[in-house]
Write a protein that binds this DNA or RNA. Structure first.
Lengths: 139, 139
DNA sequence: CTAGAGCTTGACGTCGATGTCAGAGTCAAG
DNA sequence: CTTGACTCTGACATCGACGTCAAGCTCTAG
């Protein structure tokens, strides 16, 4: 399929898909005309890329993941899988931390919404915002 | 307290604290010398600001939250609390969605780490990454 | 009094994943 | 053949929360 169809099926813009290729995340075939030709597997790959990008992974890290090889500029001679795996583990930990932060923030918003819900809030004396922070409720 | 102490106690840099003030999120008193003077309440406020910033809220939205008033440029005459609350509710929903995305991404990383863990992965034939995505495991 | 740490404002730099635009080639339908 | 939709390769623009540097003022310990 061509870039437009892949864009529609993945939610990525053509511009984004070309960017992914530039970063080494995709390697579409080329027609004689120069048009990119993508396969079905690329649909899954792009979904994965976007999931990880949305999670805050950089395209460089995703590229390492996809190739299992060191980055161009680095001079490490051998395979870098241990480092790569360690890096991914760190990313995993970062994501967990981020989930925790988001949960905290959501709790804070809940407090504010709850405090403002009863009546109109402009004229009413509002308790200090940000007065106390709650831990994420676990059940 | 002065800006350096507040910075230490909140983890924000002095530059960040000045930025928050510029965005209308803080209104420290000033000494005759021009030095900013912060109170204890500002410590909590800054923690709240940083929590919400980390959650992806813009400083403009946080500013609306803190003031309960419309933005400078807007011409809405009256209180905008209903809109503000609606906006915060949308932010809450966005955060929930983001938590979901992060959970998905973490699951994807888990799959990859699990697949790569057994042995060295460079030379071994690797199954397609991004082949299947799992729903977040709930328990 | 003096040095050095801390504070001031102002302005420009950053970073990364895109948006957007320009100029030109390609493809399918009528 | 023609038209319009699609694609190509650059290259510059964006956005937001800061980092960083400069030039100068302030505070405090000794």
């Amino acid at each position: 399929m061509r870039i437009g169809e892949l864009a529609q099926r993945t939610g990525a813009s053509p511009r984004a898909l070309r960017y992914y290729e530039q970063q080494g995340l995709l390697r579409p075939a080329r027609r004689p005309s120069g048009y990119r030709e993508y396969g079905e597997a690329d649909v899954r790959t792009v979904h994965g890329i976007r999931t990880l990008l949305a999670a805050g992974l950089s395209s460089a890290v995703i590229g390492e993941m996809l190739s299992g090889l060191p980055l161009p500029g680095e001079r490490r001679p051998g395979p870098t899988c241990p480092e790569l795996l360690a890096g991914l583990a760190r990313e995993r930990a970062r994501i967990s931390g981020e989930i925790h932060e988001l949960t905290m923030a959501r709790g804070l918003l809940d407090d504010i919404l709850a405090a403002a819900a009863p009546g109109e809030a402009i004229t009413a004396p509002r308790p200090e915002p940000f007065s106390a922070r709650r831990a994420p409720r676990r059940r």
